[in-house]
């Protein structure tokens, strides 16, 4: 399968196979009017299978959010058809306003203006806890 090179834009590489749709939704890529290509189950020497997303414009991406969803992603910033910058992601210490606490007893269930916020509690287990009630973040 051939997908054209982009001149100025972003390539999200090394996405864990099957996670590209989550990223597409979280980054609201469906609302962009540029070209967006999503490749699923591409062959990867390192990972066996991987997903890739190519975005035909330069936009601000919240790297913390991406890091939370899939810390193995490589973010390539493309300018004039070349990789101008490459970010290797990490598990962020805080994830703000992205995931919601599912604990019905948490104050965020009634305090409508409270921003949902999670902190990295266990790096090895990729475990996040709500900063209010300390419940685990539920990953898909």
């Amino acid at each position: 399968m051939i997908i054209g090179q982009i001149k100025d834009g972003i390539v999200l590489d090394h996405i864990t196979a099957g996670k590209s749709m989550d990223i597409y939704n979280v980054l609201k890529l469906g609302k962009l009017d540029c070209s967006v290509a999503m490749i699923q189950n591409a062959t990867s020497v390192k990972m066996g299978k991987k997903d890739i997303i190519k975005i035909g414009t330069l936009l601000d991406i919240n790297l913390d959010v991406l890091g939370y969803i899939d810390p193995g992603i490589t973010v390539n910033i493309i300018r004039d058809g070349k990789v101008a910058k490459r970010h290797h992601l990490w598990l962020p210490e805080r994830v703000v306003g992205v995931i919601k606490c599912r604990n019905p007893r948490c104050i965020t269930s009634t305090e409508v203006n409270a921003v949902h916020e999670f902190r990295l509690a266990d790096k090895e287990k990729k475990l996040y806890r709500c900063i209010y009630c300390e419940h685990k973040a539920e990953r898909k």
Partner: peptide, 28 residues
């Protein structure tokens, strides 16, 4: 909201002690 209640009380008192049925309410 809890936020507005404590912000108001904070104008009157030097320290607030609170009990609330919701978990994490004091953080807010």
């Amino acid at each position: 909201s809890l936020s507005d209640t404590v912000q108001t009380v904070g104008c009157y008192a030097d320290i607030i002690v609170m009990r609330h049925p919701k978990e994490g309410a004091p953080v807010v």
